[in-house]
Design a protein around this nucleic acid. Structure first.
Ligand SMILES: [Mn+2]
Ligand SMILES: [Mn+2]
Ligand SMILES: [Zn+2]
Ligand SMILES: [Zn+2]
Lengths: 136, 136
DNA sequence: ATCCTACGATGGACAGAGTCTAAGTCAAGA
DNA sequence: TCTTGACTTAGACTCTGTCCATCGTAGGAT
């Protein structure tokens, strides 16, 4: 994730300990933490970091296309650092676990012209739901 | 929508004026109202109906599979009476308009076995995003 | 190395969406 | 008509997220 820190510095970001810690917390695969989960983990490393700063930093990362915002339920949004490889999500209906998945083909192809109502299409979001092995 | 009222009566629902009004508000095609929008319209017909009752009734309709809950943004959930014909949604990124759409083929087919992580799949939700004719 | 200052961090108030509770009301069966 | 448990209500409360005024500091200028 230090690539991220480099890119951000390159974009003129002032590098603070708070931003560094948020970026570190978001490192890894299949990471889909809520803002409060990010805050909880950030506090482990930097006890005085505030909730507002975590929200601010996440919002900036989203604006910079470095993190994706995912809302799979009606609850808290989740923040996904895997922003550079397009993917979809597989969610366990019981425990809420989220995995990144890569469906084959172009999902847009399944929507016939006459079903597009004159819209200019830009993206498709797919959420697969089911029970994970532990919950089944 | 009086079919709905019949079905509900058959399921042992006590029929109150409040429930009747909520069901009436939800009648129609491409209806995707928020709870507060449902409440606002219900108040036109029955001024003393409370927000809590609207929420209660919507939750029951969802439990009975008579209405579908849709969350296309991170904002308020939308309530969709078109629960008996499976469909997906096309959303305008600018104004939020929602249309029902019917993609061809089985959306599950696009997810290869090795991408299912041992999940027992149950459903797929697809959200197509773009700009509607008025917003483009 | 020190100084400056605009940008960032902070806590707390605030807002939107939804749930819960205790008390009052009424649909519908006896 | 009476009775009663299911339904409705207002408002308090929770959860998620935003906003604001103030304070602090990263990093360029000297
Ligand atoms: Mn992801
Ligand atoms: Mn719909
Ligand atoms: Zn699970
Ligand atoms: Zn539009």
């Amino acid at each position: 994730m230090s690539d991220l820190l480099e890119r951000l510095r390159g974009r003129g970001w002032r590098m603070t300990s708070q931003r560094r810690v948020v970026a570190e917390v978001l490192d890894g695969d299949h990471v889909h933490l809520t803002a409060d989960e990010v805050h909880a983990r950030a506090v482990q490393r930097l006890p005085e970091i505030s909730r507002a700063t975590v929200y601010n930093t996440l919002r900036e990362l989203v604006t910079l296309d470095e993190v994706i915002e995912v809302s799979t339920d009606g609850r808290a949004k989740r923040y996904d650092p895997n922003a550079h490889h397009p993917h979809q999500h597989l969610v366990c209906s019981r425990c809420g676990t989220i995995r990144d998945v890569h469906p084959t083909g172009d999902p847009l192809a399944a929507l016939p012209e006459e079903e597009r109502f004159g819209f200019t299409m830009s993206e498709v979001e797919v959420t697969y739901r089911g029970l994970c092995p532990s919950c089944a």
